[in-house]
Each structure stands twice: as C-alpha cells, then as structure tokens.
Write a protein that binds this DNA or RNA. Structure first.
Length: 177
DNA sequence: GGCACGATGTGA
DNA sequence: CACATCGTGCCG
C-alpha cells in the first residue's frame, strides 16, 4: 500500500503555479462530529498575487485579504454572492499573496456546493492546514492526468488574466460537468 | 453612510 | 435565462 503523507510547508510555500497543478489527486481530510472523512480533490484554480487582476489581493492588503499575505498553508475563506463560502489554500512565502481556490471534490463538484456540504464557513478563515486537527491535506500517491482551462467567472479581470490557463482539474471528472 | 458588485447554484 | 443574498471595497 502506498504511504500517506500530510502536506506541510514544503508543499504550500512554493509558487501557486507549482502548487495548484499538484492538488487535484490529493486527499482533503475533514473532521466532523469527531469522524474524519476523506475527499479527493478534483478541481482547483490559481490566484497569483497583486498583479493578477482576478486575485482578491489585486485590491491590496485589506482585512479580507490579510491571510493571503501570510506564509503558505493557511486557509482563506470568503463569502460570494451573499450565500456561498469559497475555500482557498494560501501558497508562497510570507508577503507574496497567492491562493488556490478549491473548486471541486469527488462527488461534490462546485466551490459553493462543497463548502456547504462540509460545513465550511468564515470560522475556517486563517486555519492552518499544517497543524489543524479538523482540516488538512494528504498525498496518497495518486498522480492523475491534469487538464487546464481558463478560470471561471472572472471576465471582469480582463486580458491577459481572463485567458491564463490557471484552472487545473482531473479530466475524467470534467467530462460530465 | 451608502452603493454596486461578485472566484455560484438552482430552478424555470 | 433570472435571481437569491450580503460582505467588501470604494466613494463621499
């Protein structure tokens, strides 16, 4: 059987374009009611720093984006459309605001759907994936084929950002979305 | 203080 | 295609 390893700072403190493509295939471990469940990560998107107009950090350092300026491994959560919480993993070194939006888990496609199912809300803002007892990520040795496309719902960002192929997903799953 | 607008999902 | 629903950034 393959060895399972909890991802630590050596994984998250890298450029988001190195981290994001490696997340589909990894396992999100989530504790609820004192029971830990495993979820295969199937789809993510990279948001890369203040220059990336689609990244919330393009507005600069604010109360909302503060956690993105911390070192990789923390969780960034925010509310969209007044009803959906979005789950993000902060990447890169301190002072470099980058994050990966978790867009889909196996059997839970959709960034708003997965947080609703798991019960993830603002209370997870700032949580540390490296030391948390209720949410973390493991490498179970999967290495799926990754497909890419432009990011979803960021038309307002304009070129070149709207065209960057920074959405990464397991192709097989994409076929029926 | 007030206002416009989303890194979405659902249902018609 | 319409729309629910509210925190956040920005303007004043």
């Amino acid at each position: 059987m393959s060895k399972t390893i909890r991802l630590d700072h050596s994984f998250f403190i890298r450029d988001v374009l190195d981290v994001a493509p490696e997340l589909p295939g990894k396992i999100l471990q989530f504790r609820s009611n004192n029971e830990v469940k495993s979820y295969l990560i199937t789809e993510v998107e990279a948001y890369r720093g203040e220059e990336d107009k689609a990244c919330h950090a393009s507005k600069g350092r604010t109360a909302r984006t503060e956690i993105m300026y911390h070192k990789g491994g923390h969780i960034y959560v925010y509310l969209i459309y007044g009803m959906y919480w979005m789950l993000n993993f902060v990447t890169a070194e301190e002072g470099n605001p980058q994050a990966v939006l978790i867009r889909g888990l196996e059997n839970l496609p959709g960034p708003g759907k997965l947080t609703k199912s798991l019960g993830i809300d603002k209370s997870f803002y700032g949580e540390d994936l490296v030391s948390s007892k209720r949410i973390w990520v493991e490498d179970h040795g999967n290495s799926p084929t990754i497909s890419t496309s432009a990011r979803i719902g960021i038309d307002y960002a304009g070129e070149p950002w709207v065209s960057k192929p920074w959405r990464f997903y397991i192709g097989k799953v994409e076929s029926f979305r």
